[in-house]
Structures are given as C-alpha cells and as structure tokens.
Amino acid sequence: MPEILFREALKRGLQEALENDPRVFMMGEDIGEYGGAYAVTDGFLEKFGPERIKDTPISEQAFVGAGIGAAAAGLRPIVEFMSISFSLVAFDQIVNMAANLRYMSGGQINVPMVIRAPTGAGVQLGATHSQSFETWLAEVPGIKVVCPSNPYDALGLIRSAIKDDNPVIVAEPALLYGDKGNVPDEYYEIELGKADVSRSGTDITLVSYGYGMRPVNSAADSLEERGHSVETIDLRSLNPLDIETVLTSIQKTNRVVLVDSARRTGGVMAEVAAELQQRASEWLDGPIMRVGSIDVPWPYNRGLEREVLTDAGDVLAAAAEGYGM
C-alpha cells in the first residue's frame, strides 16, 4: 500500500468530492490564493476556480452561517477554520443554527455541511491556538464530530463526512498533518460513529482518539515489551460515540485506561468513563483510569507545553496505578 501524508489524505478526499459533485464547494480563510494554513487546499483555486474555492474575510460567524444557508439550499459546503479555537467565534452559528435547524423546523431542513478545523496542542502556539474544542462540540445533538488519528482514517472519514446529510465537524490534529501512513488506491469509506479496534489484545484496553492515539500506541508498545497483551481502541467519532466497542473490549481485558490529549476535565473521556462506570463495572478488575492534559491554559514554552500535553508516560503511569502493570 502506498504511504501518504495525513494532509495528502485529506486533500485527496476533498479533491474527489470537488471533482465528482458540483454541489460541493469550499470556504475559509486563505484556502485559495494562500493554499490553506496547513497546505491542505494547495492548488485547489487553480484547479476549481474562485466560485468553488472561496477565500473569505476573517469573519467566522458570517462564513460558517453562509455555509449553513448554502447547505439548507441544497449545496454541500466544506468550511475550514484555521484553528478549532476560532470556532468559538462562530459557536452561535454552529450550535444554534447548524445543529438546531433540523429539529426546530420539524425535519424540514437538512444541513449537509462539513466543518474542518485543525485541533490540539503541541506546536507551541500558546493558549488561544492550542485547544481541542471537539470535546465541547461533541456534546451538541444535531451535529456529528469525528477526529482521525492517521492518514487512512483521515481519508475514509472525510469521504463519509462529505456524503453525510448532517453537519459534520472534522477535527484534524494539527500535530498529525505531517504523519505518514498506508492508504490504498482502492476506494473505501469509514462509517461515522464506529470506533476502530486498532490493536487486538487481551490484558488491557487503551482508548483514545486523534492525537491521543500517538501516546496510546507508544504506551502499548512499552506494555507489550513487558509481556502484556494490549488492545487499543481509536474512537474516531465523538458524536455518535461508539461505547459498545469499548464495552466489548473491556469484557475481554477487564482493564481500561481512557486517554484524552485534550484537557482532562470535562473531556470526551469523562463521558466514556461515566458510561463504563454504569455499564461495565462488573467486568473491571480495577478503577476506570483516565488520563488527560493538565487543566491549565496552554503554555507557549516548549518544556511547559510538553509537560501539559498527555504523553506515553502518563498512560503507563495510569496502567501502573490502576492495575499494577
């Protein structure tokens, strides 16, 4: 299988949609002439023209709202935030408008829109550019939220997101754009709302998504070196949340560490933990362990930021504390 970069996988999915469906168009800050802050849309303006690759003013509320309106009228807009932290400026449109329109119209209006946004810390951008608000968005009924952790999933998820008739947030971990991974030439999609058992094992289950899969994979390697059989689960989708896959795994391993690279408090793993407490406590040999980044504003300094961000050591410490592994 050919290896491609995470950003190239996204680019392939976007390009296919633009080529195959005239209703698809893109909007965002500097996605056209500049080529996108993370170069995902590089060359698109030349290929598809200014009507379909629309550079917007720095007006997140207006262009997200315009995406919603265009979707309500039957187009399939793909809107890009330069950072998921900027989604805060447009939260009214995402939550009050995109997520609620269908319900409050009694099912009359669909919003088939994709919102793409780089997420997460790790590249020393400081407090306002390093947050992971997919965790907030995942709480809102009426929108789907996905977050890929590798190029294969990035392509499969973006394809499904664009085809979905609901608003879908695709949170793209900023640290992963340059990661390489195997992506087949044959067409495939990944169903939204399905977790992936990315490694099969019997002694402990490590659950995460997005950038969090990097420390999870690293910790899994270490645990296996010590003779433990590790199962890893990549949630991939935060709404809908695939709890069943986690439950099934825990019935086998009886041990679990939940890993969030977002801030620990109020993150997605808090929700997973609550579900597991209610539905899986009889299967567990110890406490539901939860790991997350430290609850402070993101610091700029490299050493400080590294310390705040969840890493493999945090995962291993949790496995040791909870299960003596």
Binding site: A62, G65, A66, G67, I68, G69, A71, A73, Q93
Partner: peptide, 9 residues
C-alpha cells in the same frame, strides 16, 4: 449569515 448562504446558493 444564514440568509447570505441561501443567497450564495
């Protein structure tokens, strides 16, 4: 902005 999007379509 919703109206702007409808007009855009």
């Amino acid at each position: 902005p919703l109206a702007a999007g409808l007009a855009l379509a």
